[in-house]
Amino acid sequence: MKDWLTRAGMVCLGLIVLVALASVVNLAGDPDEIVGPRLAPPGPGYWLGTDNLGRSMLPRIMEGIATTLLLSSVAVLVTAALSAVLGIVAGYRGGVVNELIMRLVEVLYSFPAIVLAILVAAVFGPGQLAALASIVLVTIPLMTRLVRAAAVGVAQRDYVTAAIISGARLPRILGRHLLPNVAGTIAVQVTYALSVGIAVEGGLSFLGFGVQPPQASLGVLIQQGTTYMTAAPWMITGPGVVFVVAVLAINVVGDGLRDRFEPRQARSLV
């Protein structure tokens, strides 16, 4: 059952990535080109209908997926790198360094995600950079805490003590002993953070602080779709479905990864 679900998640995720790649070469047409009447229902030439300017929804959704996925992925990689360093140093060093890093992270953790995102947008000005920074700030606390927890456990193991006794310097201990042994935790958290990242991008762009039109992102498309929800439901259905499928698929894959890397931890509800 579990295995089946993980595989389904991976297939969905694979398809989404393929669609994103296809949009880069405008496989389904130019997302900014006006191809038909405004708010036309699905038909030949525009298989998912058109939007309020007469642009075909299919290439727009594809561009939206690409934008959102790229933005979230880059942000999550930044988070992973920062969290790995912060978490491992805090977990291994303990003491004042640990207190400093963890209290700082907790301050971030105490902000609701969207409030933090709006704050960032106010500082950077609305746009992709604001969305990127928001995703990093929203995902960094949880990942850092979990990496630290894993690092605390690894730091007490005998092979770390043996390395210290041998006279190993800090970079070797952290790089050769700590990092490889918390990498599983990081991999699992990266998938969860990716789904959070997509949600934050969606929320921020929906509010108009993230990706700016005419560039499409899932958040931008959903925001535009809500305006015409009754007149042209196809405008919100496509991006909405993709959004839900993407977040679900990533979470399911994350659960599968977790069961593989951390088999002794509690299973998910599914």
Partner: peptide
Amino acid sequence: MQAVLQHPHWSLNPRMRVGASVAEPLAVL
């Protein structure tokens, strides 16, 4: 000075080949 510690299960880094573990004190030097 070196040490041999208690837990056989945790005495070696599971992500390092045995040869690399044995070579580590040399590599440090």
